[in-house]
């Protein structure tokens, strides 16, 4: 099986603290591999282990995103490609998907593209789906389990985690699949693999390499942009104790949770 895994480098939201707010984190905080993407890589590796083939990682990002690819290589991926070009900056999900789809086509024939459900920075739930739309491949989102896969017959059956429950869907391959965390437990790279990964070459593809015009990608190729970014209203650090009888405190809590649109 030829598997391509889309990964992204994101700010590590676990580093948010009294000493680092969201803006500071976005600007200069430590970067990690998007947590869901580790599950995507793991699923790719498991499929390769079961059915043979190869796993290629594809990441669009700044040059230092190569660290994220190295992490994925250390987990066991065969190859990695970084799409990096100043022209890509400021791209919305579709502009990003265009570059990714072009890169996938450059890589050539594939059976399955796997990505995380969403990223912890943009949280668009969109890029991988849009890659599927651009590639005209079948799209399987929120996959919690692969029930069956037959690379020879080019079919796959998955379980999708939806609000109504677990939906079993069969599909033709090639397909694009996004995964949720239930699907597996990502492996921790061994030192041996980290060392091997460090020596691997990661080619960097520019917009021109992908055969795209500057107007199709990055801010120039985008139809939405973040025009303003703010910190959410600060809250009292102290806990608010809800007093009263059980019924009163329950009502007070539900009031607050609904008012804050938490549920």
């Amino acid at each position: 099986m030829k598997i391509i895994v889309l990964i992204k480098q994101v700010p590590d939201t676990a580093q948010l603290s009294a000493n680092m707010n969201g803006l500071q984190l976005m600007a200069s905080g430590p970067r990690i591999i998007n947590p869901w993407d580790e599950y995507a890589i793991e699923e790719g590796l498991k499929l390769r282990e079961a059915h043979g083939g190869s796993v290629t990682l594809l990441c669009l990002g700044t040059p230092d995103a190569v660290e994220t690819l190295k992490r994925g290589l250390a987990m066991g991926a065969d190859e990695a490609v970084l799409i990096s070009d100043p022209q890509l900056a400021g791209g919305d999900s579709l502009a990003t998907a265009r570059a990714l789809a072009a890169a996938i086509e450059k890589i050539g024939a594939y059976d399955l593209v796997i990505a995380g459900r969403s990223s912890i920075d943009g949280g668009n739930f969109a890029t991988a789906v849009q890659v599927a739309a651009l590639l005209a491949a079948a799209q399987l989102s929120y996959v919690a389990a692969i029930k069956a896969i037959d690379p020879a017959a080019k079919t796959i059956t998955v379980e999708r985690l939806m609000e109504a429950g677990r939906e079993t869907v069969s599909s033709k391959l090639p397909a694009v699949m996004t995964v949720v965390k239930e699907i597996n437990e990502p492996r921790y790279p061994s030192f041996m693999q980290i060392r091997k990964a460090a020596k691997k070459d990661v080619p960097v593809w520019s917009v021109a390499d992908l055969g795209l015009d500057a107007g199709q990608v990055g801010a120039a190729g985008s139809q939405v942009k973040w025009s303003q970014i703010d910190l959410p209203p600060t809250r009292e650090a102290q806990v608010e104790i809800l007093e009263g009888t059980a019924e009163e405190s329950a009502k007070a809590l539900v009031d607050r949770l609904l008012a804050e649109k938490i549920i």
Binding site: Q15, P189, S190, F191, M192
Partner: peptide, 19 residues
């Protein structure tokens, strides 16, 4: 270091130490 096979719970501690 070689096989990366260890109790899954330790991953949290390792990640915590790294990050």
């Amino acid at each position: 270091l070689m096989a990366s096979e260890f109790p899954a719970e330790l991953k949290g501690a390792f990640t915590g130490l790294e990050r």
